[in-house]
Structure formats: structure tokens, C-alpha cells
Amino acid sequence: MAWKIFLFILLAFVSVAGVAFPIVPVPHTWYEFPLIPGLKENAKIIFFHVPTAWLSVVAFLMSTIYSFRYLKNKNLDDDAKSYAAAQLGIIFTVLATVTGAVWAKFAWGSFWSWDPRQTSIFALLLIYGAWFALRSSIESEEKKATLSAVYSIIAFLTVPFFVFIMPRIMLGLHPGAEEIDPSKGRIVQSSSPVVDFKMNANMQLIFFLSLIGFTILYFWMWQLGYKSILYKDRINKHSIRD
């Protein structure tokens, strides 16, 4: 129970801090964020957008790990865990996509611009959608678990391409992306305010607290999710037997 109160306080603090802490040109106290030219208040998205994107990937990873374990042990509990992770994963993926797109309208001028990360999250959304479509088209529990486990592992094999390779063929707008230097004609580290984005210590503190808070929230939700699936199965089996 204590950790639930801790989580509540942590998330409440992060939400208030992320939205309400002022942005000033030269920060003096710990609750002031530095001004980033060209971004201003828009910079605060990092406290909420990045955790959702992070969790959408974590959920995908967990879904794949439990798929792998299902194929190894053929235990339907692992399938329930994988399913619960994917259910949360699609929610966080949609949240990351929507928050990112709305933010991009104000910061980059358009909702969608096929930046490598946007392409990757779009692919992730398609993978989740396909995975649920596959599951809903199979009747038998074991077959459903096996085929969806195989599909999620195959889909996971494409992740390195999106994470490491797409940012190199397409030019990006997210922090850390590269761009073509027009004067030299070579690919260099970009220097626009978003891409060159660096957090100072205050922002990093709130950012990592937010990341930790949302991750704990995710694991709590995941536990509730798979337990409810397991109980539902047990009740179904019970009612069939009687």
C-alpha cells in the first residue's frame, strides 16, 4: 500500500512540476527551467511525451519476451501476460503518437512529417493493430497464443531496422537527429533548437522522476491487467464445469 501512496505523490508532483514550473532565461533556483530559443513552453512536452513513447516500446519488448516464454513452456499464463502488455502498449503508443502530433503542429508546423521516429511509431501502431487482428481471428486458445507469439517475435525482428537504421536513411527532427550541412554537403549533427535539445540538471531531475513514475504505473497496470485475464479464464472454466 505504501508504494501506491508513493506513486501517487510522485506522479502528482511530476504532473504539477512538468506543467507549472516556470521557464526563465537564467535559472537560479531548482524549480526554474532554462529558456530554449525557438521552443519556449513547448519544451515541457518532454516530461510526458517521452515516457509514453518509452513505455510503448517497453510494452512491446515485454510482450515479445512473454511470447518467447510461451513458445518455450506452453503455459497460457505467459500468453495472458503478453496480451496484457500489448493492451497497455497500444494505449501508450496512441498516446505518444497523439501528443507528438499535436505538439509537432505547434513546434514544427505540421501534424506529421515522416521523421524516422514518427515512421517507427507508426510501424509500431501497425504491428499492434495487426497483432490484435490476428488474435481476434483465431478461435482456439492454444493456437491463438502460438500464432500471435510467433508473429510478435517476427515483428520484433524488424525493430533494429527502425531504431538504428531508419534515422540514418531519413533525416530527422527529433533530438539527436542528423542533417545535411548545406555549406559542406555532408551529414552533420543538426543545430536546430529541437534537435540540439539539451536538458539542464533541473529538467533532468523532473524528466527522470516522470520516467520512473510512469514506468511504475505501467507495471502496476500490467499486473492488474494480466491478473484480471487469468481470473476471467478461471471463472469461465469454473462455469463450464458446473
Binding site: 515512421t119 510501424a123 501497425l126 504491428i127 493493430g129 495487426a130 487482428a133 490476428l134 481471428s137 508473429y151 517476427i154 515483428a155 524488424t158 531496422f161 527502425f162 537504421i165 531508419m166 536513411i169
Partner: peptide, 15 residues
């Protein structure tokens, strides 16, 4: 189901 399942897997290849 076939194109729906194949497209995300083929996306890196196609791009």
C-alpha cells in the same frame, strides 16, 4: 489478414 500482417514486417524492406 494477409496484407495487414505483412505490411509492418515488410516496411523496412520496402522503404
Amino acid at each position: 489478414l494477409y496484407p495487414v500482417l505483412s505490411f509492418p514486417i515488410l516496411l523496412p524492406l520496402i522503404l
